[in-house]
Simulated scan of single mutants.
Amino acid sequence: MQERPKRVSAGGGVERPNLARLFDYYLGGAHNFAVDREFAERSIKFFAADDAARTTRSFLRRAVHLCATAGIRQFLDLGSGIPTAGNVHEVVERVDPSCRVVYVDNDAATVAHGRTMLRTSTTAAVVHADVRDPDAVLNAPETARLLDLDEPVAVVMVGILPYLSDDDRPADVVAKYREAVVPGSRLVVSHLTADLEPEMMGKLVHLGTLAGTTLTPRGEAAVAELFTGFDVLAPGVVPAGTWHQDGEDTSPSSCLSYGAVGVRLP
């Protein structure tokens, strides 16, 4: 039997639910506490939040697998949360064990969990930084050690951009990362939207508020704008649950986010 990963104690971090630990719980991970599990179970009854989490993770796996099979060997996962089962490094290493992954998160407890999980890895690491500060992300020692910015990189922004307000100018944040990577690099994005299931999205935004965060869903045009300077691969900006999915997924949770992958233009 595989050894259960050790839990990391984060002073003051167990009194209220933590979004990264909630996501970990929804996906069947072990890096969560009683306060997270209690909140998660209530949210599942209220909203089927676990279905939404699995849809997001499934899109992530399909998208990064596509990037890896296209020859990308470097991955920068922004706002990654806890690298629980089925995360980027596990997916891409099945394509090529030499693939290198840098996870980025701004929550100290989440970073501590991730570093414990990856403590023996030579090809994956976690950076403690805010995705809104590309200089801090790209100049971090872990980034410099693992990523060669003169070679193509897949910039992964799955689920993180709704945490940026309009005042944060998310399209400008994405543009800074675009300018930091070479042509041929990939951009992987999923983004919450109220376009298709507004009632369910209202419940999700409410859950975010209860967990102490503000979520900003955006429409299709705003998500498409994030890909300025990229050639968006087929099938374009579509519901994340249907992107490169075998068969038709018509569940409501498949329509809570748009998903797309683009290739950096010269």
Results as ranks from 00 to 15, higher is better:
R4C: 01
P5S: 10
K6C: 05
R7S: 07
V8G: 07
S9D: 14
A10V: 12
G13L: 04
G13P: 00
N18S: 15
N18E: 12
L19M: 11
L19K: 01
R21H: 05
L22M: 13
F23I: 06
F23S: 12
D24W: 03
Y26K: 09
Y26C: 15
L27M: 04
L27T: 00
L27S: 00
G29A: 14
G29S: 12
A30K: 14
N32E: 00
A34I: 07
V35T: 14
D36Y: 00
A40T: 05
E41I: 01
E41T: 09
E41A: 08
S43L: 10
I44A: 15
A48G: 06
A48C: 04
D51Q: 11
R54K: 15
T56N: 09
T56Q: 02
R57I: 06
F59L: 11
R62M: 10
R62G: 13
R62V: 09
A63D: 01
A63V: 00
A63N: 05
A63H: 02
A63S: 10
V64K: 02
H65W: 04
H65F: 09
H65P: 00
L66E: 12
L66Y: 11
A68Y: 07
G71W: 05
R73W: 09
R73F: 07
F75E: 07
F75D: 03
F75N: 05
L76I: 11
D77M: 02
D77E: 10
L78S: 03
G79M: 03
G79S: 08
G81W: 02
G81D: 09
P83A: 13
P83N: 14
P83Q: 13
T84L: 03
A85N: 05
G86F: 04
V88G: 09
H89L: 05
R94K: 15
V95K: 03
D96F: 03
P97F: 04
S98D: 14
S98H: 11
C99H: 02
C99Y: 04
R100G: 13
Y103N: 05
Y103R: 09
Y103D: 06
Y103V: 08
N106M: 11
N106A: 14
A108Q: 10
A109H: 12
T110E: 08
T110K: 06
V111I: 14
H113C: 15
G114S: 14
G114Q: 03
R115V: 10
R115L: 12
R115T: 11
R115S: 13
T116W: 13
